[in-house]
C-alpha cells in the first residue's frame, strides 16, 4: 500500500469502499427481506382481526387497508362466545406442568450424560435427540393406548403426560451443550470448599447453567403451545382443549371460517410469546449454538 502513488491509492480505496457499500446493501436487503417475511404474518393477523365481514370478503376492497372502520366484534366473539379463556388456561396449565417436568428431568439427565457417562454420554445424547425426530403422527397411535390405560382419555392431563416425551429428548440434548461449557473445576472446587457433590452442583453448575435452563423453559413452552396432533387425538370436550385445537374446532364450523376471530386467537397467543422470545433472544441463541457445537 505504501509504495503505491497517491492517485492509485485513492482509486483502490475508492473501489474498497464501493465493495463495502455493496456488501452492506446486500446485507441490509437480506435483513429487510427476512424481517418482512417474519413481520407480514403478524401484520396480516392484526389487520384481519379488526376487519368486518363486509370489508374482508369483498374482493374489490384493497386487502391492505381498512375499507370499513375497524371493529372489536371479532374479539368479542372469540372472548365471549367460545371457550377461548378455558383454552388459554388449559394451555398455560399444561405448559407449566410440562416445563416443570422437563426441567426437573432434563437438568440431572444432561449433567449425568456429560459428567458421569464418559464417552457413552455424547453418543447417548445423540440417540436421545433422535427420538425427537419420530413424528407425533406415528407416535400418537401407541400413545392413545397408554393414555386409555391410564384413564386419561379426554383429559388435559393426558397432554401433560405425553408432551414431555418430545420436550425431554430435545431439551436434554440442548442442555448437554450448556453443561459441557461449565468448567469441571468449579464443581470440584466447590467440593473441596466444603460441599457434597449434590451441594456443589446446586451452588455452581445450576447457577452457571441458568441461561441453558431458561432456554429449556422457553423451548418446552413453545413446543407445548404449538402442539396439535396429540391434543386433537386425546381430547374431545371443549373444557379440556388447548388453544391450538380448541380455536380450530370452535371457529371453523363446517365450511364457515371465522377468519377474524381465528386471527385474533393466534395473535393473542403469539404476540406475548414473541415478546418473551425477544427478551431472551441472546441467551436463546447462545443455547442453540452451544448445543450445536458439539452434539
Amino acid at each position: 500500500m505504501a509504495t503505491l502513488p497517491p492517485t492509485q491509492r485513492f482509486a483502490s480505496e475508492g473501489s474498497g469502499r464501493g465493495k463495502q457499500f455493496l456488501a452492506r446493501t446486500v446485507l441490509y436487503a437480506t435483513a429487510v427481506i427476512f424481517s418482512l417475511f417474519a413481520f407480514i404474518p403478524f401484520a396480516w393477523m392484526i389487520m384481519t382481526m379488526f376487519k368486518t365481514n363486509n370489508d374482508l370478503y369483498n374482493p374489490r376492497n384493497n386487502p391492505f387497508l381498512y375499507n370499513d372502520p375497524p371493529t372489536l366484534s371479532n374479539l368479542d366473539l372469540l372472548w365471549n362466545d367460545t371457550s377461548f379463556r378455558t383454552f388459554i388456561f388449559n394451555t398455560f396449565l399444561i405448559a407449566l406442568v410440562v416445563m416443570a417436568v422437563t426441567v426437573i428431568i432434563v437438568v440431572p439427565a444432561a449433567y449425568s450424560l456429560v459428567r458421569l457417562a464418559g464417552r457413552w454420554g455424547s453418543n447417548l445424547g445423540i440417540l436421545i435427540f433422535l427420538v425427537y425426530l419420530v413424528p407425533p403422527t406415528l407416535l400418537f397411535i401407541p400413545l392413545t393406548g397408554v393414555v386409555a390405560d391410564l384413564g386419561l382419555q379426554n383429559s388435559k392431563w393426558s397432554m401433560a403426560l405425553v408432551y414431555p416425551t418430545f420436550t425431554i429428548p430435545f431439551c436434554t440434548w440442548l442442555m448437554m451443550g450448556f453443561m459441557r461449557s461449565v468448567p469441571w473445576e468449579i464443581e470440584e472446587q466447590a467440593m473441596i470448599d466444603g460441599y457434597s457433590r449434590i451441594g456443589a452442583i446446586w451452588r455452581t453448575v445450576i447457577p452457571v447453567s441458568i441461561p441453558g435452563i431458561l432456554t429449556v423453559v422457553i423451548f418446552s413452552f413453545t413446543l407445548t403451545l404449538h402442539e396439535f396432533v396429540y391434543s386433537l387425538a386425546f381430547v374431545q370436550s371443549s373444557g379440556e382443549k388447548t388453544v391450538s385445537v380448541g380455536v380450530f374446532t370452535e371457529l371453523i364450523r363446517g365450511d364457515v371460517f371465522f377468519w377474524q376471530s381465528l386471527m385474533a386467537a393466534a395473535a393473542l397467543v403469539a404476540i406475548p410469546v414473541a415478546l418473551l422470545y425477544n427478551y431472551f433472544l441472546d441467551r436463546f441463541i447462545a443455547g442453540f449454538t452451544l448445543g450445536a457445537v458439539k452434539g
Binding site: 468448567p183 473445576e185 468449579i186 470440584e188 472446587q189 466447590a190 467440593m191 473441596i192 470448599d193 466444603g194 460441599y195 457434597s196 451452588r203 455452581t204 447457577p207 452457571v208 441458568i210
Partner: peptide, 28 residues
Amino acid sequence: PPRARQIAMVFQSYALYPHMNVKGNIAF
C-alpha cells in the same frame, strides 16, 4: 470426601465461581 480433608486447592484455571463476585468467591 474432599470436603472432609481440610485441604485447599488452587486449580490451574483458578476455578473462580463466575456467578459470584470476589467477596462471594472468597467467602464460599
